[in-house]
Design a protein around this nucleic acid. Structure first.
Length: 462
RNA sequence: GCCCCGUUCGUCUAGCGGCCUAGGACGGUUCCUUCUCAAGGAACAAAUCGCCGGUUCGAAUCCGGCACGGGGUACCA
């Protein structure tokens, strides 16, 4: 049997980094087992639908190079892959459930439901549907249907039963059926709710492994029941731990800024480094390695070795991982990434850019660091961190008046001149650095001057 | 409120009854290197393994209770 995994995002906004982390697991597991990874769009919430969100999802997956084998855009043997285009299918299966006596029409108004809930809350009872419509006679239902009364379809839940399933990450999980609500499976607008859509589509699309966030554990018993009602085999479920905010308070949210995939792209993180980090917070390399590429992750990881604990997001560690990737890159490759990332360097001289790479590479954590580190190569500094001490100027002017413009020769000359003038070498170097780069920190000075050239250097002294 | 999941250095984790004086990584501190900042190298600090009981010759590891954290409790996903 072919392993089939899937990601089922809803187009309700920017892609969340947590989605990418789930995609990584889906993708890795499918690749590892020679299976398929599917993208299905769960666009059943018309109120929250965001125009263009679908394209952003594709763009994000492309950026991370986690492309699905089947998707709304790509098509595939189980098309359509957009739930909004599968409405007749859900209708048919909902009717099947009604016929079997596992679901029923509900004509309760939102107002009644809300009043009911308020009442239950006041009495400190769990807010649940009171099953009013479950006992409607066939004639009553037929009459209301004929009168086009707005209605939903609810699933029935058996009383006093243990509903359980085995989660590949958390193990055996058991619920009492009495705490499960008679969930709406078809909304009044003819769209399915998530719970119904996933079960029907996962079955129809022959999904074998469902990896999703832990927030779904509580609703899984409803899905267990649905599979049972239909007589379908339930896929293996693995509920992945939620990534928490840096302070550990709540799941990673847009409030904290870096929940959006876009944040990482714009800040100059490398997709492969982000993926490495993401896998690292819920999984450990058997040899304890922290840095490993995707192929190695795919080869080494086991779903069962994913932790069940919710990790906090640690930007500092991500910075370190990203820096490791940058340092491991060839100069040409790094340059290509920077050019692609930073509009300011697009028009600059490639040969010159390439020469600067070795000097800045090990000082970078993210691609956006390049410009602040190396902009002085491409023009005089437009501002200075502090005033230049002019008394060093004369010493430097003569010390740098040498024919052999190499950093070795410059160093010799400057040190000799410095000694003769009774000055401290480090002070002289600092003033020179300031005159040329405008900053007190940066790449190795003399090597930078060698690249900059004698003429430009001397002109910057003035 | 009710239900579910989780709980090892500040953070991410290793650990599956004796190999644990609890290991690694990020971060921190110190030192080396050094024209600055990094990077790199070395070292140090940092967890009475949430708490209380139990099982056992022996528990971070098994069991129970409690506490705390997270999630769920919608015609949202």
């Amino acid at each position: 049997m072919t392993i089939r995994t899937r990601i089922a995002p809803s187009p309700t906004g920017f892609p969340h980094i947590g989605t990418i982390y789930q995609v990584l697991i889906d993708y890795a597991y499918a690749r590892k087992t020679g299976g398929k990874f599917i993208l299905r769009l769960e666009d059943t919430d018309r109120a929250r639908f965001v125009e263009g969100a679908e394209d952003v999802i594709y763009a994000s997956l492309a950026w991370f190079d986690l492309e699905p084998d089947e998707s709304p855009k790509l098509g595939g043997p189980f098309a359509p892959y957009r739930q909004s285009e599968r409405l007749p299918i859900y209708k048919k299966y909902a009717e099947e459930l009604i016929d079997k006596g596992h679901a029923y029409y509900c004509f309760c108004t939102r107002e009644r439901l809300e009043a009911m809930r308020k009442d239950q809350e006041a009495k400190h009872l769990p807010p649940m549907y009171d099953k009013t419509c479950m006992t409607l006679s066939a004639q009553e239902v037929a009459a209301k249907l004929a009168a086009h009364e707005p209605h939903v379809v609810r699933m029935k839940i058996p009383e006093h039963e243990k509903i359980s399933f085995d989660d590949i990450i958390s193990g055996h999980i058991e619920f009492d059926s009495d705490v499960i609500d008679h969930q709406v499976i078809m909304k009044s607008d003819g769209y399915p709710t998530y719970h119904f859509g996933v079960v029907v589509d996962d079955h129809l699309m022959e999904i074998t492994h469902v990896f999703r966030g832990k927030e779904w554990i509580s609703s899984t018993p409803k899905h267990v029941l649905l599979y049972k009602y239909f007589g379908w085999q339930m896929p293996i479920h693995g509920h992945l731990p939620l990534i928490l905010n840096e302070d550990g308070k709540g799941k990673l949210s847009k409030r904290h800024g870096h929940a959006s995939v876009d944040y990482y792209r714009k800040a100059g993180y490398l997709p492969e480094a982000v993926l490495n980090y993401l896998s690292n917070i819920v999984w450990n390399h058997p040899e304890g390695k922290e840095i490993y590429d995707r192929e190695e992750f795919i080869a080494q990881f086991e779903v069962t070795s994913i932790t069940a604990q919710a990790p906090r997001f640690d930007l500092k560690k991500l910075d370190w991982v990203n820096g490791q990737y940058i340092r491991a890159m060839k100069d040409e490759d790094l340059l290509a990434r920077i050019v692609d990332f930073d509009d300011r360097v697009k028009q600059l001289d490639k040969a010159l850019l390439l020469k600067t790479m070795p000097l800045v590479k090990e000082r970078m954590h993210v691609l956006s660091d390049y410009w602040s580190l190396a902009s002085f190569f491409f023009g005089k500094p437009d501002e200075f961190e502090r005033d230049v001490n002019a008394k060093y100027k004369e010493v430097l002017r003569s010390a740098l008046n040498i024919g052999d413009w190499t950093h070795g020769a410059m160093e010799q000359s400057i040190r000799a001149a410095t000694d003769a003038a009774g000055l401290k070498a480090r002070d002289v170097f600092m003033e020179l650095r300031l005159m040329v780069t405008g900053k007190t920190v940066g790449p190795p000075l003399l090597e930078a001057l060698e690249i900059l050239g004698k003429e430009e250097t001397l002109s910057r002294l003035e």
